[in-house]
Amino acid sequence: MEKSNNTFEPVVVAFCCHYCAYTAADMAGSQRIAYPANVKIVRVPCSGKVDAIHLMKALEKGADGVYVAGCLEGDCHFNTGNIAASRKVTKVKILLDEIGIGSERIEMFLMSAGMGRRFAEVATEFTEKIRNLGPNPVKAAADKAVG
């Protein structure tokens, strides 16, 4: 895989909990802390609401990386939604390894509503990681077939 492909701009989907990461993203914006435009945010009422199928569909439809951002441990508005989310991410990681997509394309992060800087860091670091991994092999193969 060509790691230094300059033209590759990864598409990253971030499922962000309304009570923490989504607000943190807002805060990053208002504090003018930059984060990559590659990250497409999907607001969810709780990270626990994200199902395995959402993560899979995002990748199937062409995302290069996906992450779920939920509240800090013990801070979930619905008590344990973030823990449930993290278990689902682990499960999907295993599935992704099994089908040769690679578990590193999805991740779970925890943060609070006040962590604008943390949100930006996570978004930047994850985007860079995916950039280094290169395009989602599903999409790459489809593009090749078409082109």
Binding site: I53, M56, V138, A141
Partner: peptide, 19 residues
């Protein structure tokens, strides 16, 4: 139903990857 959705998605991706 859920597992059907997941497996279908995983299979499609697996084979798409192989073109």
């Amino acid at each position: 139903r859920k597992e059907v959705g997941l497996l279908a998605s995983a299979l499609r991706m697996h084979f798409m990857k192989e073109g």
